[in-house]
Write a protein that binds this DNA or RNA. Structure first.
Lengths: 227, 227
DNA sequence: TAGATTGTTAATCGATTAACAATC
DNA sequence: TAGATTGTTAATCGATTAACAATC
């Protein structure tokens, strides 16, 4: 046994990545009026091995009851607490292009610990407009506003060749965590948290698998025009 | 030694995910006129351990020359071939909302094995419009066109509660690979490739780290208004 | 040559999977 | 009670990291 197993630290990244999916199922279960759930059932809904579900839930520090399962509301509370989704971090987004607009319109960020309060852009024609109710401000104002409002999270949705400059700006202004959507390796001081979402990584997996499939069974690739 | 180490199969997913970043650096090196590169140098640019770079490059089947390094163009060719980025797969996108529009506008998909040729949407007001030069067609036409054109890749950019229905439609129409941007677990026949990009997973990592940081050193979270 | 860089082989680390006794 | 489900401990698997001889 570890000295303190109620510590919220040391949870494996793969487990953290699965937590949002657990949460979303737990909310559904709650709506269905169910108060408890077993690892087996949760696993079926998410196509995960029940043993893995149990291991993941173990990280919450909660104990389930044999033959019964886990308390749905308690699991929700515990997971939200671990992820920090029981509070809301204000965030600034830089880059009011297509991707930026999509992020501003994302539905459930506020329930996931993130409140994008404003967007910033260099382009004069975008400045002053509103996207999904969020004002687009001139990039110049980023540093000042970040400091004044104590904003801790920055989101980068600019082209790859501008990303590092924006990151530097954010760090300089005191941002603690950067959610980066540009496919670049950002250089930041080690105390700054960076989470990069790189679409090309996922695309690489997809196209590689497809290439293997098409190479192995070329027939499968060619579909007949009329069934 | 394995029976055949020139097989393109069996490359670890983490390596595949890193390949696009290697590629992008390799292109930059090429532009800079460099013909060879060492693992050390590549590693520095991407903040990766040189040993890991070597292991990754080993997967290409290429051999480098001691004291010199690897041939840049050969590496590019090999990695593109493994990822299937030396050919282009036509893809249909479903969901012409914010996210869909962002994907339609993504700059380098065509150089990454993916050509989104059309978008589909249920909403009559969107149908007929053009987004980034791509026509938005009625969802009804998806199945028919997929079969007729032999399109093999489908992209799902609809809200979570519609995703499974769209996936079913795609599978029925003969789609072989699905790039899914809805945060749901899709049920598809096992021969269909699914790659889900779930923003909430990444967000979970970010907010959890931030929560830990703020809990450990609360002072760091509060910045002074005037440095 | 000497030294940088390689490919290979072994050690470490961490997550998943399996096995099983405990319990409601 | 019997059986489902739990938590825990051990085995497996896979990726990263380390060590080192080979080579240009």
């Amino acid at each position: 046994m570890s000295p303190r197993n109620d510590e919220p630290r040391g949870i494996p990244a793969p487990t953290l990545r699965r937590f949002p999916a657990y949460l979303s199922q737990l909310f559904r279960l709650q709506e269905e009026g169910r108060d408890v759930v077993s690892s087996t059932h949760l696993g079926k809904r998410l196509m995960l091995d029940p043993v893995q579900v149990r291991k993941d839930l173990e990280c919450t520090g909660l104990v389930g009851r044999p033959k019964v399962g886990h308390s749905v509301p308690k699991l929700i509370e515990a997971i939200e607490s671990i992820l920090g989704w029981n509070r809301v971090n204000e965030a600034f987004l830089v880059g009011a292009g297509n991707l930026g607009a999509a992020l501003l319109g994302y539905p459930r960020f506020k329930q996931s610990g993130l409140d994008i309060v404003a967007a910033f852009d260099e382009a004069p024609e975008k400045v002053g407009s509103e996207i999904h109710g969020k004002t687009v401000l001139p990039l110049k104002k980023l540093a000042n506003l970040t400091r004044r409002m104590g904003v801790k999270v920055g989101i980068i949705a600019v082209p790859a060749d501008h990303a590092q400059a924006v990151a530097d700006l954010m760090v300089e202004a005191g941002i603690l965590a950067i959610w980066n959507f540009a496919p670049v390796t950002l250089r930041v001081p080690e105390e700054v948290i960076v989470q990069t979402e790189d679409l090309y990584s996922g695309l690489a997996i997809l196209t590689q698998k497809l290439a293997v499939r098409l190479r192995e069974e070329p027939s499968k690739g060619v579909r007949h025009a009329h069934e």
